[in-house]
Every structure is written in C-alpha cells, then in structure tokens.
Simulated assay, not measured.
Amino acid sequence: MSENEKLNLILEGIGEIKDDVQGLKEDVQGLKEDVQVLKEDVQGLKEEVQVLNEDVQVLKEDVQTLKEDVQSVKERVTLFEITLENETNRNIQLIAEGHMNLDRKLDEALKELHPNTMYHLKVNHLDGEVTKMKRVLNMA
C-alpha cells in the first residue's frame, strides 16, 4: 500500500470520525434542549409547590380558628345546658306544682304561691350561677 493510499484511508477515517463527532454534537445539543425544558418544568413545579404551601398555611390557620370557635360554642352550649337543667327546668316544675293548688280560692293560692315560689326561683338562679362559676374555674 502506498503512502497516498494510507493517507486516503486515514482521511476517510478522519471524515467518518468527524461525522460521528458531528452526530454526537447534535445529540448533545438535543440533550441540552431537553435538560432546559426539564429545568423550566422543575421551576414551574417549585412555584406551584410554593403556592400550595401558602394555601396549606392559610388552611391551617382557618382550621385553628374553627377549632377555637367550636370550643367556644361547646362551652356556651354546656352553660346553656346547665342553666336549662338546674334553673329553668326546676323553676318550671316549681311553678307547675304551685299551680296545682288553683282549685282553691285564687286569693289563697296566690298568698301561698307567691313568697315560696319567689324564694325557690331565686335559690335556683343562685344555684345555677354557682354551678357556672365552678365550671369556669374547672376549665381555667
């Protein structure tokens, strides 16, 4: 094989290598573009996650407020139940029992009913207030 033939073979090999290198460059350029697209997608996801984190924080605050409101409502309902049970129901019962005497003369019924009933109503009211105070002190 002559020197020219050897040089031609080498040049052909170099040409093929150049073609392969050019192909690799094109592939690398494609990969760079794909990586850029991925970077943009990741940035978009990061922004969306940030928005979600802010929304979750707002929801946590709202839930905390709701918990506090529910606790307040529970306490108020408990106080209403105590008042209803200890005061209102007793007072209604006392008034009803006092009115069973209406078969007697109206004057006699009023004389007997008025002082005792008023005292019982006042005692029931004070009993209810003491119960409420005990409940508040137990919660503190």
Rank of each mutant, 00 (worst) to 15 (best):
T78E: 15
G15A: 05
Q64Y: 03
I17S: 10
V58Q: 05
Q22V: 12
N8K: 09
P115M: 04
K60W: 04
H114T: 15
F80W: 11
L113P: 01
E112K: 12
E87P: 00
D41T: 10
Q57D: 13
L121C: 05
N91R: 02
L137M: 11
N91W: 00
D34P: 00
K132F: 08
K25P: 01
G15L: 13
Q71V: 01
E129N: 03
M118N: 05
G15H: 09
Y119N: 12
D19W: 06
L113H: 03
D107T: 08
N86M: 13
L59A: 05
M1D: 08
M1W: 04
G128C: 01
R104K: 12
I82Y: 09
G98D: 09
R135D: 12
L11Y: 08
A96W: 06
E87A: 12
L137G: 01
R135G: 04
L94W: 05
Y119R: 07
E85D: 10
G98F: 03
V70G: 02
E3I: 11
D19L: 13
D69Y: 01
V123D: 15
M1F: 07
V21L: 14
V42L: 12
E81F: 13
V56H: 01
D62M: 01
L84K: 06
E40K: 08
N89H: 08
I92E: 04
I10D: 01
R76C: 06
Q29P: 01
K60G: 11
K25T: 04
E3W: 13
L38Q: 03
K32H: 00
Q93D: 11
N8D: 05
N53I: 09
S72G: 14
V28L: 13
E87K: 09
G44W: 00
M118K: 08
D69Q: 12
L7M: 13
T65D: 06
E54S: 06
E16P: 01
V123T: 14
D27A: 14
Q36K: 10
E81V: 12
Q43A: 03
D107G: 07
Q22P: 00
V51R: 15
A109G: 03
E40V: 05
K105F: 07
K6I: 13
E54I: 02
V51M: 11
L52I: 03
L24A: 10
G44E: 00
Q93W: 09
F80C: 09
E61L: 07
E129G: 02
E68Q: 15
V56S: 03
E16K: 14
D103L: 10
H125A: 09
N86T: 11
D107Q: 13
E85F: 11
E40Y: 02
E26A: 10
E48F: 07
K74N: 14
V21G: 02
E48D: 15
D69F: 02
L121R: 02
D20V: 04
L84T: 15
D103N: 11
R76G: 10
R104G: 04
A140P: 01
L79D: 07
I10C: 00
A140H: 06
V37I: 15
H114F: 13
L24C: 06
E108D: 10
M1E: 07
K134Y: 08
H120C: 06
K6G: 03
I95P: 00
E5A: 05
M133L: 13
A140M: 08
E12V: 09
N124I: 00
D62N: 04
K111F: 12
N8T: 02
V42M: 04
E75I: 10
